[in-house]
Design a protein around this nucleic acid. Structure first.
Length: 260
DNA sequence: ATGGTTGCGAAGCAA
Protein backbone atom coordinates (compact mmCIF):
# COMPACT_ATOMS: atom_id res chain seq x y z
CA UNK A 1 0.00 0.00 0.00
CA UNK A 2 1.22 3.49 -0.84
CA UNK A 3 0.03 6.49 1.17
CA UNK A 4 1.11 10.06 0.39
CA UNK A 5 0.52 13.43 2.07
CA UNK A 6 0.67 16.77 0.29
CA UNK A 7 -0.20 20.31 1.31
CA UNK A 8 -1.27 21.63 -2.10
CA UNK A 9 -1.81 25.30 -1.08
CA UNK A 10 -5.18 25.66 -2.88
CA UNK A 11 -6.57 22.74 -4.83
CA UNK A 12 -8.12 25.17 -7.30
CA UNK A 13 -4.68 26.53 -8.15
CA UNK A 14 -3.13 23.03 -8.13
CA UNK A 15 -5.80 20.74 -9.63
CA UNK A 16 -3.94 19.96 -12.85
CA UNK A 17 -0.71 19.25 -11.03
CA UNK A 18 -2.44 16.97 -8.53
CA UNK A 19 -4.26 15.02 -11.26
CA UNK A 20 -1.03 14.66 -13.25
CA UNK A 21 0.84 13.55 -10.14
CA UNK A 22 -1.78 10.92 -9.28
CA UNK A 23 -1.72 9.58 -12.84
CA UNK A 24 2.05 9.32 -12.71
CA UNK A 25 2.34 7.86 -9.19
CA UNK A 26 -0.87 5.85 -8.72
CA UNK A 27 -0.68 5.94 -4.91
CA UNK A 28 -3.47 4.11 -3.08
CA UNK A 29 -4.23 7.06 -0.80
CA UNK A 30 -3.43 10.78 -0.99
CA UNK A 31 -3.92 12.98 2.07
CA UNK A 32 -4.43 16.60 1.00
CA UNK A 33 -4.20 19.78 3.07
CA UNK A 34 -5.14 23.38 2.31
CA UNK A 35 -7.75 22.70 -0.34
CA UNK A 36 -9.07 26.24 0.34
CA UNK A 37 -12.40 25.02 -1.05
CA UNK A 38 -15.87 25.34 0.43
CA UNK A 39 -17.43 22.22 1.91
CA UNK A 40 -19.37 20.56 -0.89
CA UNK A 41 -17.19 22.19 -3.55
CA UNK A 42 -14.64 19.60 -4.59
CA UNK A 43 -13.20 18.12 -7.75
CA UNK A 44 -15.09 14.83 -7.32
CA UNK A 45 -15.42 14.27 -11.08
CA UNK A 46 -11.79 15.05 -11.91
CA UNK A 47 -10.64 12.46 -9.37
CA UNK A 48 -13.38 9.91 -10.10
CA UNK A 49 -12.43 9.78 -13.78
CA UNK A 50 -8.86 8.82 -12.88
CA UNK A 51 -9.98 6.17 -10.40
CA UNK A 52 -10.05 7.97 -7.04
CA UNK A 53 -12.79 8.26 -4.43
CA UNK A 54 -12.87 11.48 -2.39
CA UNK A 55 -13.74 12.70 1.09
CA UNK A 56 -13.42 16.42 1.79
CA UNK A 57 -13.82 18.64 4.84
CA UNK A 58 -13.80 22.18 3.49
CA UNK A 59 -14.47 25.67 4.72
CA UNK A 60 -13.46 27.95 1.84
CA UNK A 61 -10.72 30.60 1.61
CA UNK A 62 -8.52 28.87 4.20
CA UNK A 63 -7.74 25.38 5.46
CA UNK A 64 -9.65 22.39 4.10
CA UNK A 65 -8.47 18.76 4.23
CA UNK A 66 -9.24 15.78 2.02
CA UNK A 67 -8.57 12.10 1.46
CA UNK A 68 -8.37 10.54 -2.01
CA UNK A 69 -8.30 6.77 -2.39
CA UNK A 70 -8.30 4.10 -5.07
CA UNK A 71 -10.09 1.90 -2.51
CA UNK A 72 -13.50 2.47 -0.97
CA UNK A 73 -13.62 5.21 1.70
CA UNK A 74 -15.63 4.29 4.80
CA UNK A 75 -16.48 5.71 8.23
CA UNK A 76 -15.51 9.30 7.39
CA UNK A 77 -15.12 11.55 10.43
CA UNK A 78 -14.81 15.33 10.31
CA UNK A 79 -12.64 17.17 12.82
CA UNK A 80 -11.12 15.82 16.03
CA UNK A 81 -12.82 14.68 19.23
CA UNK A 82 -13.93 17.65 21.30
CA UNK A 83 -13.43 20.09 18.46
CA UNK A 84 -15.75 23.00 17.84
CA UNK A 85 -15.51 22.75 14.02
CA UNK A 86 -14.57 26.38 13.62
CA UNK A 87 -11.87 25.42 11.14
CA UNK A 88 -11.57 22.49 8.73
CA UNK A 89 -8.26 20.93 9.73
CA UNK A 90 -8.89 17.21 10.29
CA UNK A 91 -10.60 14.39 8.44
CA UNK A 92 -10.24 10.65 8.87
CA UNK A 93 -11.60 7.50 7.26
CA UNK A 94 -11.29 3.74 7.18
CA UNK A 95 -9.63 2.54 3.96
CA UNK A 96 -8.78 -1.10 3.24
CA UNK A 97 -8.69 -1.83 6.96
CA UNK A 98 -6.48 1.16 7.80
CA UNK A 99 -7.67 4.21 9.77
CA UNK A 100 -6.18 7.23 8.01
CA UNK A 101 -6.04 10.86 9.17
CA UNK A 102 -5.35 13.93 7.01
CA UNK A 103 -4.37 16.83 9.27
CA UNK A 104 -3.55 20.50 8.83
CA UNK A 105 -2.12 21.55 12.18
CA UNK A 106 -2.43 25.30 12.85
CA UNK A 107 0.65 27.33 11.94
CA UNK A 108 0.87 29.20 15.24
CA UNK A 109 2.17 32.42 13.65
CA UNK A 110 4.36 33.46 16.62
CA UNK A 111 4.98 32.25 20.17
CA UNK A 112 3.11 35.22 21.69
CA UNK A 113 0.11 34.86 19.37
CA UNK A 114 -3.24 33.35 20.41
CA UNK A 115 -2.93 31.17 17.33
CA UNK A 116 0.04 29.46 18.98
CA UNK A 117 -2.15 28.50 21.95
CA UNK A 118 -4.69 27.20 19.46
CA UNK A 119 -1.92 25.14 17.83
CA UNK A 120 -0.90 23.54 21.13
CA UNK A 121 -4.53 22.83 22.01
CA UNK A 122 -5.08 21.27 18.61
CA UNK A 123 -2.07 19.00 19.16
CA UNK A 124 -3.47 18.08 22.59
CA UNK A 125 -6.80 17.15 21.01
CA UNK A 126 -4.90 15.05 18.46
CA UNK A 127 -3.13 13.24 21.31
CA UNK A 128 -6.53 12.48 22.85
CA UNK A 129 -7.80 11.18 19.53
CA UNK A 130 -4.75 8.96 19.03
CA UNK A 131 -5.19 7.55 22.55
CA UNK A 132 -8.71 6.51 21.61
CA UNK A 133 -7.46 4.88 18.38
CA UNK A 134 -4.54 3.12 20.04
CA UNK A 135 -7.06 1.53 22.36
CA UNK A 136 -7.81 -0.71 19.39
CA UNK A 137 -4.31 -2.17 18.98
CA UNK A 138 -5.29 -4.41 16.04
CA UNK A 139 -6.16 -1.49 13.76
CA UNK A 140 -3.44 -0.22 11.43
CA UNK A 141 -3.23 3.56 11.83
CA UNK A 142 -1.75 6.34 9.69
CA UNK A 143 -1.75 9.92 11.00
CA UNK A 144 -0.43 12.18 8.28
CA UNK A 145 -0.43 15.75 7.13
CA UNK A 146 1.12 19.18 7.51
CA UNK A 147 2.09 19.26 11.19
CA UNK A 148 3.76 22.68 11.01
CA UNK A 149 6.32 21.25 13.44
CA UNK A 150 9.89 20.21 12.58
CA UNK A 151 10.52 17.24 14.91
CA UNK A 152 14.22 17.93 15.54
CA UNK A 153 17.14 20.19 14.63
CA UNK A 154 17.95 17.74 11.81
CA UNK A 155 14.66 18.76 10.20
CA UNK A 156 15.48 22.42 9.56
CA UNK A 157 18.21 23.85 7.35
CA UNK A 158 19.57 26.10 10.11
CA UNK A 159 18.24 25.82 13.64
CA UNK A 160 19.60 29.25 14.60
CA UNK A 161 17.35 30.94 12.04
CA UNK A 162 14.26 29.59 13.80
CA UNK A 163 15.26 30.40 17.37
CA UNK A 164 12.30 31.85 19.24
CA UNK A 165 9.92 30.95 16.42
CA UNK A 166 7.12 28.47 15.98
CA UNK A 167 7.66 25.03 14.38
CA UNK A 168 10.71 24.29 16.56
CA UNK A 169 9.60 25.18 20.10
CA UNK A 170 9.91 22.57 22.88
CA UNK A 171 6.15 22.73 23.52
CA UNK A 172 5.42 21.68 19.95
CA UNK A 173 8.18 19.07 19.70
CA UNK A 174 7.24 17.55 23.06
CA UNK A 175 3.74 16.94 21.76
CA UNK A 176 5.19 15.00 18.83
CA UNK A 177 7.19 12.97 21.36
CA UNK A 178 3.96 12.16 23.19
CA UNK A 179 2.51 10.82 19.94
CA UNK A 180 5.63 8.70 19.53
CA UNK A 181 5.30 7.40 23.10
CA UNK A 182 1.73 6.41 22.28
CA UNK A 183 3.07 4.10 19.57
CA UNK A 184 3.12 6.30 16.48
CA UNK A 185 6.37 6.18 14.51
CA UNK A 186 7.70 8.94 12.28
CA UNK A 187 7.85 6.79 9.15
CA UNK A 188 10.42 8.92 7.31
CA UNK A 189 12.77 8.81 10.32
CA UNK A 190 12.19 5.07 10.70
CA UNK A 191 13.78 4.36 7.31
CA UNK A 192 16.26 7.30 7.23
CA UNK A 193 17.51 7.93 10.78
CA UNK A 194 20.37 10.27 9.88
CA UNK A 195 19.38 12.14 6.74
CA UNK A 196 18.12 15.69 6.39
CA UNK A 197 15.35 16.21 3.89
CA UNK A 198 12.69 18.89 3.68
CA UNK A 199 9.04 18.88 2.61
CA UNK A 200 8.48 22.66 2.65
CA UNK A 201 10.44 25.60 1.32
CA UNK A 202 9.33 29.25 1.57
CA UNK A 203 8.27 30.82 -1.72
CA UNK A 204 10.47 33.80 -0.90
CA UNK A 205 14.17 34.42 -1.30
CA UNK A 206 14.80 31.48 -3.61
CA UNK A 207 14.57 29.19 -0.59
CA UNK A 208 13.96 26.06 -2.65
CA UNK A 209 16.91 26.75 -4.91
CA UNK A 210 19.11 27.19 -1.83
CA UNK A 211 17.48 24.16 -0.16
CA UNK A 212 16.48 26.28 2.82
CA UNK A 213 13.52 24.29 4.05
CA UNK A 214 11.95 22.31 6.86
CA UNK A 215 10.56 18.81 7.28
CA UNK A 216 7.10 19.62 8.63
CA UNK A 217 4.92 17.20 6.63
CA UNK A 218 4.84 13.85 8.39
CA UNK A 219 3.40 10.38 8.02
CA UNK A 220 3.09 8.73 11.43
CA UNK A 221 2.14 5.06 11.63
CA UNK A 222 1.59 2.50 14.34
CA UNK A 223 3.46 -0.81 14.62
CA UNK A 224 1.27 -2.54 12.05
CA UNK A 225 2.38 0.00 9.46
CA UNK A 226 5.99 0.10 10.64
CA UNK A 227 6.44 -3.66 10.50
CA UNK A 228 5.65 -3.76 6.77
CA UNK A 229 7.34 -0.48 5.85
CA UNK A 230 9.68 -0.59 2.85
CA UNK A 231 10.29 3.01 1.70
CA UNK A 232 9.52 6.65 2.51
CA UNK A 233 10.60 9.52 0.28
CA UNK A 234 9.90 13.15 -0.60
CA UNK A 235 9.00 13.86 -4.24
CA UNK A 236 11.15 16.97 -4.47
CA UNK A 237 10.43 17.36 -8.19
CA UNK A 238 6.90 18.53 -7.34
CA UNK A 239 8.32 21.66 -5.69
CA UNK A 240 9.93 22.68 -8.99
CA UNK A 241 8.77 25.41 -11.32
CA UNK A 242 6.47 25.11 -14.28
CA UNK A 243 4.95 28.11 -16.02
CA UNK A 244 2.53 30.62 -14.55
CA UNK A 245 -0.33 28.17 -15.06
CA UNK A 246 1.47 25.31 -13.31
CA UNK A 247 3.11 26.87 -10.29
CA UNK A 248 4.16 24.50 -7.50
CA UNK A 249 2.82 24.35 -3.97
CA UNK A 250 5.38 25.40 -1.37
CA UNK A 251 5.18 21.80 -0.06
CA UNK A 252 6.32 18.60 -1.78
CA UNK A 253 4.53 15.24 -1.42
CA UNK A 254 5.78 12.63 1.05
CA UNK A 255 5.13 8.99 0.08
CA UNK A 256 5.30 5.85 2.22
CA UNK A 257 5.10 2.25 0.96
CA UNK A 258 4.22 -0.64 3.27
CA UNK A 259 2.69 -4.11 3.32
CA UNK A 260 -0.39 -4.45 5.44
C1' DA B 1 17.25 46.88 1.38
C1' DT B 2 11.80 45.10 7.59
C1' DG B 3 13.16 42.90 1.66
C1' DG B 4 11.04 38.59 -0.85
C1' DT B 5 6.32 35.00 -3.06
C1' DT B 6 1.86 32.96 -3.49
C1' DG B 7 -3.35 32.53 -2.82
C1' DC B 8 -7.63 34.56 -1.88
C1' DG B 9 -10.32 38.08 -3.31
C1' DA B 10 -10.42 42.52 -4.47
C1' DA B 11 -7.19 45.43 0.46
C1' DG B 12 -4.65 43.19 3.35
C1' DC B 13 -3.96 38.99 5.72
C1' DA B 14 -2.03 34.31 6.13
C1' DA B 15 1.56 31.26 5.27
Amino acid sequence: MQVATWNVNSLKARINRVVDWLNANQVDVLLIQETKLKHGAFYLDRFEEIGYHSAHFGQGQWNGVAILSRHEINEVRYGLLGETFDEARAISALIAGVRVFSLYIPNGRSLDNDHYRYKLEFLDRLIGEVKSQISNPELPLIVGGDFNVAPSSADVYDESVFEGMTHVSPEERNRLLVLEQLGLYDLYRAVSPDETVFTWWDYRNGAFHKNQGMRIDLLLGNRHVLSGLSSVFVDRNERKGGGKEERPSDHAPLIATFEI
